[in-house]
Design a binder for these strands. Structure first.
Lengths: 116, 116
DNA sequence: AATTCATTTTAGTTTCATCTAAATTACAGC
DNA sequence: GCTGTAATTTAGATGAAACTAAAATGAATT
């Protein structure tokens, strides 16, 4: 583990990319399309950073370049990242479920005795 | 593990501090004294960042404030950091030993046949 | 209450990362 | 060759992080 790796995963944007290519490989264009808030160029730069840190590998194929995560580089940290993503998902699902199943009046805060 | 933790350990300066207080607690002034290339103020700011990330705890005592690492916050990543530091030490020691025990002419690169 | 020591905080500057828009490269099909 | 698609690269703008110097805080000592 070197500095470059820690610096790479410190960026939310790069973690977002890393998560996309964690289990499957994806073309650069599809990665960029999954992030409508930035330009293709910006994504390409981050892909380069990830590649230089050894966190992704690139496979050129025809006009496309397919990226996928190189999990081994992260060692134990891979598990931490996965947990981080799972926890975030879990929180989202929980929030959605609470919202969907809620009936009746809005949840109350702890009750206080009315002032005289 | 949240973003704040990853962001905190992405900084070499904060890692340097974290390493100092990894096994023992240290007064802020002593930490700053161990880093002659920056001011006390700068170190204090980084200590605050580490504290906000939950990576150190502070114990006031008289005029001093003693900081120590809160390793639990790092979970598995703690091991990765330790390995990182050990590896760096190992490399330094190896280099020092090579330098100290070297005798005779400087080490040669792989021999090539002389050109005719 | 004034002084000293240890530390934090503030305000301003520099440095660095990230982004955009546009130019450029690379590859394939016509 | 030219055209179109996929991606990278460049140059420049913007914002955040890290630093410094100086001022402010807090706790002990006189």
């Amino acid at each position: 583990m070197e500095h470059a790796v820690l610096a790479a995963i410190a960026s939310p944007r790069r973690r977002e990319i890393l998560r996309l290519v964690w289990n499957r490989e994806m073309a650069a264009g599809d990665i960029a399309a999954a992030m409508p808030d930035v330009t293709f160029g910006a994504v390409s730069l981050q892909l380069r950073a990830l590649q230089e840190a050894g966190l992704v590998v690139c496979r050129p194929d025809q006009k496309n370049r397919f990226y996928k995560a190189k999990r081994a580089t992260l060692g134990l940290v891979a598990k931490s990242l996965e947990r981080m993503w799972d926890d975030a998902l879990w929180r989202l699902k929980l929030a959605a479920q609470l919202e969907a199943t809620r009936r009746g009046p809005a949840p109350r805060r702890k009750h206080h005795k009315p002032q005289k």
